[in-house]
Simulated scan of single mutants.
Amino acid sequence: MDWTPPAVAPRADAVLTARLRQRIDHLTKPLGALGQLEALMLQAGLLQGRVDPRLDAPQVLVFAADHGLAARGVSAYPSDVTAQMVENFLAGGAAIS
Results as ranks from 00 to 15, higher is better:
83 A>L: 08
13 D>M: 02
19 R>P: 12
66 D>H: 07
92 G>M: 02
97 S>W: 00
50 R>T: 15
70 A>Q: 01
74 V>G: 01
41 M>P: 14
94 A>L: 06
3 W>P: 02
8 V>G: 00
16 L>F: 05
47 L>E: 14
1 M>F: 03
91 A>R: 10
89 F>W: 09
85 M>R: 08
48 Q>N: 12
90 L>V: 04
77 Y>W: 14
82 T>R: 08
64 A>S: 11
37 L>A: 15
62 V>I: 14
93 G>H: 14
64 A>G: 07
36 Q>C: 04
75 S>E: 01
32 G>V: 13
66 D>R: 12
86 V>K: 14
91 A>V: 01
82 T>M: 07
36 Q>W: 13
14 A>W: 03
76 A>V: 03
12 A>N: 07
36 Q>N: 07
4 T>W: 03
8 V>Q: 10
7 A>N: 04
75 S>I: 00
13 D>K: 04
2 D>V: 11
45 G>F: 13
82 T>A: 10
33 A>H: 15
43 Q>S: 09
30 P>E: 13
13 D>I: 01
54 R>S: 15
88 N>C: 04
23 R>N: 08
6 P>V: 09
2 D>W: 01
66 D>F: 02
54 R>V: 15
81 V>T: 06
63 F>A: 08
86 V>S: 13
60 V>S: 06
31 L>C: 01
58 P>W: 12
9 A>K: 10
7 A>C: 02
90 L>P: 00
55 L>H: 07
65 A>D: 07
37 L>I: 14
28 T>I: 13
89 F>S: 02
29 K>P: 05
92 G>H: 03
22 Q>A: 14
70 A>V: 05
29 K>R: 05
2 D>N: 08
32 G>N: 12
56 D>S: 11
29 K>L: 06
96 I>G: 00
64 A>Q: 08
57 A>M: 10
22 Q>P: 06
66 D>M: 04
10 P>T: 04
57 A>G: 05
41 M>T: 10
40 L>Y: 15
66 D>P: 04
37 L>T: 14
90 L>F: 02
64 A>E: 06
13 D>P: 03
17 T>H: 15
35 G>S: 14
25 D>Q: 07
82 T>H: 03
62 V>E: 09
22 Q>E: 14
83 A>Q: 09
66 D>L: 05
44 A>Y: 08
38 E>Q: 13
91 A>F: 01
67 H>I: 06
75 S>D: 02
85 M>E: 00
43 Q>P: 08
12 A>E: 09
74 V>Q: 04
84 Q>F: 05
95 A>I: 07
15 V>G: 03
51 V>E: 15
82 T>W: 03
42 L>V: 09
57 A>L: 11
25 D>H: 12
90 L>K: 05
42 L>K: 07
49 G>P: 10
9 A>L: 05
63 F>D: 03
24 I>R: 12
21 R>W: 02
95 A>H: 12
68 G>A: 00
90 L>Q: 01
2 D>P: 01
8 V>A: 08
69 L>T: 01
21 R>I: 09
25 D>Y: 03
15 V>P: 02
97 S>L: 01
22 Q>S: 11
53 P>C: 11
4 T>N: 07
